[in-house]
Computed example of a mutant assay.
Amino acid sequence: MEENALRILLVEDNPGDVRLIRELLAAEDTSFVISAADRLALGLQQFADQTFDLVLLDLFLPDSMGLDALRQFRATAPSVPVIVLTGLNDERLAIQAVRDGAQDYLVKGQIDGRQITRAIRYARERHRMMLEVRDQSLTDELTGLYNRRGFVALAQEMVKRAAGTGPGSGLVVTFIDLDGMKHINDRFGHKAGDRALIRTGEVLRSAFRISDVIARLGGDEFVSITAGVEKSDIDALRLRLANALAAHNRQAAGEPELLLSLGFAYYDPATGSPRSIDELIAEADAAMYLDKNNRKKARA
């Protein structure tokens, strides 16, 4: 496969249409590598096993009729653009397909190689721009972590997925406050304050797992949610954070020392009553303030 070839999954049960699409794309200058599946289930399986840049999807398959196939692909891989292929020139269906996440709607028999190639190129660019806008609305510009909106959306989904999955399905919400932010701004300047927030984000990334969701809620407040843990794992998490913070401070020559206050809230969906993510954040926030006050007393 050429290094820059576009990898396309064609989900189409008509061998004649598969052959036609291959011929149309082969006639163009752009390099395409096409994998075909004649059932929705086979297409989804290929998608799980391989990496694709775009999906060309027939809406009428032996195991799926209408927009359900599109919805399943969008749910499985929202980061990959989908172009709908159909024999029906139905404007209402086309509009609904776009509303459901398709980047384009092409009618078989009414397209040539140049048109389908252009549709693929435009679909990929539109989808890239859409993802950029989405990511910007969910991430904190300064630290690159999620913002409150992004955190709540992803954390709610994690709580939902964990419900009823049995032992070991617990979640920990960790609330983190960067202590002394006003002192850093007043003594070292606001640029140093911004760097302190960025550095805190780096500490958190190094302490938490890739699968954990970390966010800056605003100001000097951060939060994370960790899934698949027991309550006893909180001590290990606290130690990882302490070690990551100490290692960072040792290496951050010339920068103000970072100090963090921590609070934890544990939820076991298998045994506890339903909890909202806002409730868990509030509980962890209260525990963080207790930690902050206790450390102030210890320093006094």
Rank of each mutant, 00 (worst) to 15 (best):
D194P: 05
S169I: 03
N294C: 13
G228N: 05
T174I: 10
G254S: 09
G87R: 01
E28T: 15
A69Y: 04
E141G: 13
T143S: 10
K231F: 12
E221M: 09
L40P: 00
A94N: 03
A253Q: 12
A36V: 10
D285F: 07
L217T: 03
R195T: 12
V18T: 15
V11Y: 00
F175I: 07
I95R: 13
P78T: 08
N243C: 13
L259S: 15
S232I: 12
I225M: 08
D53T: 06
L42A: 12
A37G: 07
Q72Y: 11
Q50D: 13
T143Q: 02
A41M: 14
Q156G: 15
L70M: 10
E157G: 12
D63F: 09
E283Y: 07
I176A: 05
Q251G: 12
E132F: 08
A155V: 05
V223N: 01
L178I: 09
R238K: 11
K231D: 13
A287K: 06
S211A: 15
T139D: 06
D177I: 04
G113M: 08
A155E: 04
A207F: 02
A196K: 00
Y146V: 07
K292P: 01
S169T: 05
Y122W: 09
G219Y: 08
L54K: 05
G168L: 09
P274F: 09
V98E: 10
H127Y: 05
E12A: 06
L70Q: 02
S31E: 13
I225N: 00
L67A: 06
K191L: 15
L280S: 01
P81Y: 02
I21W: 00
F60K: 14
P81W: 01
F264P: 02
P15A: 14
L280F: 00
L56G: 00
P78N: 13
T117N: 09
H183P: 11
T226V: 10
A252L: 07
S232G: 15
D135L: 13
N4Y: 14
L54S: 03
K297H: 14
L10A: 04
R275M: 14
Y267P: 01
S137F: 09
A26R: 14
S273A: 15
P167Q: 08
L6K: 10
D194T: 09
G166M: 07
S206C: 10
Q115W: 09
R238L: 06
I277V: 15
F32V: 03
R99S: 12
G113L: 07
R99Y: 10
E12W: 03
L154A: 14
Y122F: 15
E28Y: 10
A37P: 03
I21C: 08
Q45P: 10
E141H: 13
F32G: 02
S276M: 07
T30C: 10
D177H: 11
A77Q: 11
I210F: 12
I34W: 02
V33G: 13
R7V: 04
R19E: 15
G66H: 04
A27K: 11
S79K: 14
L24Y: 06
